[in-house]
């Protein structure tokens, strides 16, 4: 359950942020989020409320988790193949 979409904070006015969701901007309330939110931050939106400030470094953390799963798979030719493709494209 619980549709959640990340977006980038453009502006903060009191307890409301204007958030850019890839091409559309929407006001999102900040009553629930437990950290100070400033322009440039990413937040997770659910029903018009920010429920989490997403620290930028945590994106890398998740991708590192993926890498770890694939690293366990060192003997798998397919994953090696895919990893090199990912590296080539990044």
């Amino acid at each position: 359950m619980c549709l959640g979409v990340p977006g980038k904070v453009i502006e903060v006015r009191d307890s409301v942020a204007v958030v850019d969701f890839w091409g559309v901007r929407k006001e999102v309330r900040l009553d629930i989020v437990d950290e100070n939110v400033v322009p440039g931050d990413y937040i997770l939106n659910h029903v018009g409320f920010a429920i989490r400030r997403i620290p930028p470094e945590s994106i890398a953390e998740t991708l590192a988790l993926y890498e770890m799963l694939l690293a366990q798979e060192g003997d798998d030719l397919m994953s090696l193949d895919v990893r090199s493709e990912i590296e080539a494209s990044s």
């Binding site: 694939l70 366990q72 798979e73 798998d76 994953s79 895919v82």
Partner: peptide
Amino acid sequence: LQFRDPKLARSMAAT
């Protein structure tokens, strides 16, 4: 792109 990369998904499916 990486969160939605089908190649990465197929690799995880193999695992």
